[in-house]
Design a protein around this nucleic acid. Structure first.
Length: 619
DNA sequence: CGACCCATAAACATCC
DNA sequence: CGGATGTTTATGGGTC
């Protein structure tokens, strides 16, 4: 689970994603001269265009070679009658050798790049379905088009070879051609930059077909280029050139970062960077798992004594614990594997992972806990393994848990039985005393307005009326205390959080947490804020913070939308899950706001908007 | 101390 | 009839 999430996180993270897609698209372009316009109407047409472009590029490359005065490779057809045949042959040989050599070099580079890509793909970095800007290895997408890898490679070599020649100063007389050729090469190699320049190139004599193809992919290419442009500055590694506008940037990109050895090298470096980050991530993940394993695998303490709990409680939340174990509490380690380890576990895990959590042990949630704890999504995620294996009662109310279960469902709805399953699956604690907690679940479902029962084809499913849920929470949290809570809670784990969050931010790993939530690619870019918080290993701490933030948000949200006395009831029908088979692409975005009742689930844009609002609110 | 929240238990109703 | 599912009421501990 955690690994899954991590992978997804990686692939989802804006950094890796943008980075990779742009990177790979460049490399890709280089490797196959011509990127499929992905989005083009039909695959066939795209393929055709691609093929055509490749041919043209190849031709251009050959022409360039032919026109090279000195060492140009002359085709048999172009015999210079005035020169002795021998001489011509020698020249040809020379040029051919030169070309071969260059091709070999480039081929090596390409292989390296491919390896990188492959590695990353294997690691899930490039798991996205091939699409625009999506890295595709020659053999993968192109082969279907009818081109063998060998052919493609040859094409690539041809093109790059010609390009390399240009770099070698072999472009004089063939200026026109080389320019054209150049543009074609770069345009394909650097999708982002290409569009504009491509136009020039095209106008300079490129075939209409090619022109057309470029037009079609112009949009995506431009879009891709945007990831390299921000705040008026070129974000190409080590560049930072100031560009007044995007157009200028594109020119800059094309001129300064065209496909050449330097750019290629930089790409490789960037790949390495990404790889390093990934490695580091996996290490950190391992560490986290080890920590968690250590904490809950610990040779179970003799017995869950209240003391430890008290200790914990005293440290963190206090009161809760004394009451300690509910009847069914861990006291009786039903599972040998998951010794209740209350003490050590709690004192450590929670303390490490989250303060709010700690208390959980004894009495399940209390207002207090609830107040400080955050949306499960974020909180549980980081400690997923922990709760899954440790027979520890989660510090959340049934309502919270139920909501989380539902939220994690792809379609935001679950049958009672599915909710049960989620409980048992997610928490070791709920693998016992089924009658008790199941009854409680049912009780909560019926009791709380935020849970809406929906008649379905199959039967009945339960959904969450986010409005109601938030309303409830905001009511609890609201008041003067709300404001106070935020800062205090923030300060709570400040030290830990600060560094961590900073690290995360820097690393651009927004979606680090939420295993199940990150499944959908759609979430990747969308739900970062929440996910980010949740993602951090310090989940709970952050969770706390988050919760508060969440509460604040909720507050703001409700108030913001209908400031004076929002009328919770009348507003929007709570999630119409029933009528419409929602296709929420993401179960991710655990964020309550995302699911807010009033909007149809489908829109990622909405999500982004909400996100925006969210962040705004936060600020 | 009272209001409120939450968990738990249980009676009862419905449906399959 | 029995089990699953829902609803409702009661009770008690904890928090504010």
């Amino acid at each position: 689970m955690m690994q899954e999430s991590a992978n997804e996180t990686i692939s989802n993270s804006s950094m890796s994603q943008n980075g990779m897609s742009s990177l790979s698209s460049q490399l890709d372009a280089g490797s196959r001269d011509g990127r499929s316009s992905g989005e083009t109407s039909s695959e066939v047409s795209a393929v055709e265009l691609l093929h055509l472009q490749q041919q043209q590029a190849l031709q251009a490359a050959r022409q360039l070679l032919l026109q090279q005065p000195g060492s140009g490779l002359k085709s048999p057809k172009n015999n210079d009658k005035q020169r002795p045949l021998q001489q011509q042959q020698q020249q040809q040989q020379l040029a051919a050798q030169q070309l071969v050599f260059q091709q070999q070099l480039l081929q090596m580079q390409q292989l390296q790049q491919q390896q990188h890509l492959l590695n990353m793909q294997r690691q899930g970095l490039l798991s996205l379905p091939p699409g625009p800007g999506q890295p595709t290895l020659p053999g993968q997408t192109l082969q279907p088009a009818g081109l063998s890898p060998a052919e493609l490679q040859q094409l690539w070599k041809d093109v790059t070879g010609s390009h390399a020649m240009e770099d070698n100063g072999l472009k004089h007389s063939g200026l026109d051609l080389s320019t054209t050729n150049n543009s074609s090469t770069t345009s394909t190699s650097n999708p982002k930059a290409s569009p504009p320049i491509t136009h020039h190139g095209i106008s300079n004599g490129q075939s209409p077909v090619l022109n057309h193809r470029r037009e079609s992919s112009l949009h995506e290419e431009t879009a891709a280029a945007q990831s390299l442009y921000g705040h008026g500055v070129c974000k190409w590694p080590g560049c930072e050139s100031v560009c007044d506008d995007f157009g200028q940037f594109l020119k800059h990109l094309n001129s300064e970062h065209a496909l050449d050895d330097r750019s290629t090298a930089q790409c490789r470096v960037q790949m390495q960077v990404v790889q390093q980050l990934e490695i580091q991530l996996s290490k950190e993940r391992e560490r986290l798992q080890a920590m968690m394993a250590h904490l809950h695998m610990r040779p179970s303490e003799p017995k869950p004594s209240p003391k430890p709990l008290n200790l914990v409680s005293s440290v963190t939340m206090s009161k809760n614990l004394p009451s300690v174990s509910p009847p069914n509490l861990p006291q009786t380690p039903t599972t040998p594997t998951a010794p209740v380890t209350p003490l050590s576990q709690m004192s450590q895990v929670p303390s490490v992972l989250s303060p709010a959590n700690v208390p959980s042990m004894g009495a399940m949630r209390r207002r207090h806990t609830d107040k400080y704890s955050m949306p499960l999504s974020s909180e549980i995620a980081p400690n997923y393994e922990f709760y899954k294996n440790a027979d520890v009662r989660p510090p959340f109310t049934y309502a919270t848990l139920i909501r989380q279960a539902i939220m994690e469902a792809g379609d935001m709805q679950l049958t009672l039985n599915e909710i049960y399953s989620w409980f048992t699956r997610t928490f070791a604690y709920f693998r016992r005393n089924a009658a008790t907690w199941k009854n409680a679940v049912r009780h909560n479902l019926s009791l709380h307005k935020c849970f809406v029962r929906v008649e379905n084809v199959k039967g009945a499913v339960w959904t969450v009326d986010e409005m109601e849920y938030q309303k409830r929470r905001s009511q609890k949290i609201t008041g003067p205390t709300l404001v106070k809570n935020l800062p205090s809670s923030l300060g709570y784990g400040a030290a830990l959080n600060a560094s961590l969050q900073a690290a995360l931010a820097e690393t651009s790993l927004p979606l680090l947490g939420n295993p199940g939530l990150m499944n959908s690619a759609s979430c990747m870019m969308g739900a970062s804020p929440p996910c980010l918080m949740s993602g951090s290993p310090t989940g709970l701490l952050q969770g706390t913070t988050h919760e508060d933030l969440n509460g604040t948000l909720d507050h703001l949200d409700t108030n913001g939308h209908s400031s004076p006395g929002y009328s919770p009831h009348t507003q929007l029908p709570p999630i119409h899950v029933k009528e419409e088979p929602l296709n929420m692409d993401d179960e991710d975005c655990p964020m309550s706001l995302v699911t807010t009742a009033n909007h149809s689930p489908e829109l990622d844009e909405d999500r982004e908007l909400e996100e925006g609002n969210l962040s705004e609110d936060l600020e």
